[in-house]
Amino acid sequence: MNAQIIGQMAVSGALMGLVYALIAYGFQLTFATSKSINFGQGELVMISAFFSLTLTNLGFPYWAMVPGGLLFGALMGLVVERAGVRLALEQKSEGWILLSIIIGLFFFSAAENIWGRDDRPFPTPISADPIHILGVDVTRLELSVAVGVFAIMGLIELFKRRTLLGKAFEAVSADRDAAELMGISSTRTVMLSYGLSGSVAALAGILVSPITTVGPTMASALILKAFSVAVVAGLDSGFGVVLVGMFLGALESLASFYLGSGWREAPGLILLILALALRPNGVFGKATIRKV
């Protein structure tokens, strides 16, 4: 076993890890504004990928398909917010956990029946030929994942820092009630966050599909790892999810190499339970102060 293979495995694993990071980032967006996350986010990734595949099959070019897919993801995110989250948040109950799972299940079943149960290839203009960088082989496809992930996270962070609406978003995250007093509607901000989160999920689907193929179960493994990343990194650090995502991707790529491919999921799950035991607020998270 030489360093080169290990390096190669780690790099391609880390690039895949960026997809987990991207989905986890979607959790952070909604958690910031509403302290809730969509437990059916994996199904959003999946149906958005299917929708984008349909767009491609209808003859839309790649550059038109991507925004179309993102828009669809945003719409579905809004559906989750309206049908699953808003009522529970108004009642201050945790019913949203169950409801978002249920809506995900519905999406899953719909996708199964509309698009079929089989895995299908996802055509892309980006080539899968490897290029040699710093001693390891990376495909353009894998690089496109990195570019896409950093581009959308960068854009959203820019939006949050540079526009007034983005600052309002941050204000709601910091103090919902005080933001309301400034005339910022927290309901609309939560909607915005679910829309953005849906788009992020859609992009994750579009980026990962050419590598993994599209099918109803394509996101079931992805989403578990995204959950792990979100919890391990904490639900409030964008920088943290990227780091933890890449680390986890590399780790599991090595685990499947040494222990067998069935154990691929194990590092993420073990990392998660360890993190919960040692640092419940996440490695990059902030501790909360209890009030009475």
Partner: peptide, 23 residues
């Protein structure tokens, strides 16, 4: 460990445990 958590984190921890046991 899991019951130090509340709400979503607890649900996530149990979900992960279930996945781990299937694995």
């Amino acid at each position: 460990p899991a019951l130090r958590l509340e709400g979503p984190q607890f649900a996530l921890a149990t979900l992960s445990f279930a996945a781990l046991s299937t694995t």
